[in-house]
């Protein structure tokens, strides 16, 4: 039985990969109990490397592992994994296109208590800008497991944006996945909502609410933020009256930007973003409270749809 907690699903999947392939090694920057890389440590102590609180060194060390034929997974909070070690990801890993897997754990606002310094709301923008980097953001634990199954053969570097908390299951067990796939989780004709991460389940709730008002909504999960399947975005955006993107990320550089980039040069319905405005996060007592503070709710998604449709008339 898969845990609804994405980190636990991640740790368990890493162990599963470790059993399957001895090229898998894990490097940690003293957050193993949070990222759940500790599960791998317990199973494979010889293939687990505690690198201390030194993310830059960890990233370049992983490059050395990959250059010697291994598949290293490196771990930290998303904000540090992407930002603190950005230059190392860029130069040591992305230029030579190495199969390093970067686990950006506690992504977005999911580390609600620790505040601005620990909340990565711009990591996807940073990672998306790096040539060769694949950027993944699973919507639930099932998707975490499926993505991890792709990690042994995927050729270049991968950045995983992993939420810290339990998330509702949106995927039926056995739904096939491959990197790059945009999954249609609900069909509809009037509106397209592209979501990622925690916002996928919220988009589905919004769609349900809108249905009772006679608005038919299709919901798409952009779990592969990069490489983005441009053709699929264009197809899913076709024929609707409004397009909304929803993400736990800055509205600069995340899936909202990616969708608009994909739709450039193609006539399409008006687009609006639900996301974190151009600002840092803030400490809160709970995750739900913080998401509400930043209007990352199903109500906000539904209201955004209603506003767009009103403007249309």
């Amino acid at each position: 039985m898969t845990s609804p907690n994405l980190r636990i699903a991640y740790g368990a999947s890493l162990v599963r990969l470790g059993k399957k392939d001895d090229r898998v090694v894990a490097l940690e920057a003293d957050l193993g109990k949070t990222t759940q890389s500790a599960m791998f440590q317990a199973e494979f102590p010889d293939r687990y490397f505690q690198m201390g609180i030194a993310e830059q060194n960890m990233a370049s060390t992983a490059a050395g592992f990959a250059l010697s034929g291994m598949i290293p997974f490196i771990h930290s909070f998303a904000v540090f994994a992407s930002g603190r070690a950005y230059d190392q990801l860029r130069n040591s890993i992305c230029i030579p296109n190495l199969p390093v897997r970067i686990c950006g754990s506690s992504a977005g606002l999911s580390d609600f208590g620790d505040g601005k310094t620990h909340q990565g709301v711009e990591d996807a923008a940073l990672m998306r800008a790096l040539p060769n980097m694949t950027v993944l953001c699973p919507a639930d634990s099932t998707e975490v497991e499926q993505m991890m199954d792709c990690m042994l053969d995927w050729p270049g570097p991968v950045y995983f944006r992993i939420n810290r908390n339990d998330l509702p299951f949106v995927y039926p067990v056995g739904e096939p996945y491959s990197i790059g796939k945009i999954t249609k989780l609900r069909d509809g004709n009037n509106v397209a909502i592209f979501g990622s991460g925690v916002m996928v389940s919220r988009a589905l709730e919004a769609a349900k609410a809108l249905e009772s008002e006679g608005i038919s909504v299709r919901v798409l999960d952009i779990s592969t933020i990069k490489p983005l399947d441009r053709e699929a975005v264009i197809n899913y955006a076709a024929g609707v009256d409004a397009i909304v993107t929803a993400e736990e990320h800055s509205i600069i550089g995340g899936i909202g930007s990616a969708v608009v980039e994909a739709l450039r040069g193609v006539s399409h319905a008006p687009v609006e973003f639900v996301g974190v405005p151009d600002s840092f996060g803030i400490s809160a007592e709970g995750y739900e409270e913080l998401l509400t503070h930043f209007k990352l709710t199903s109500d906000e998604v539904a209201n955004t749809v209603r506003t767009l449709l009103k403007g249309k008339k």
Binding site: N57, G64, L67, M70, S92
Partner: peptide, 25 residues
């Protein structure tokens, strides 16, 4: 050429990763 270096300061880390792998193997 064994690695991408030049953004200064990264070569020793990469060398460590290689040495750790060689030890494993």
């Amino acid at each position: 050429i064994e690695a991408v270096t030049g953004s200064l300061g990264q070569g020793l880390s990469i060398a460590n990763g290689m040495a750790l792998t060689l030890r494993l193997k």
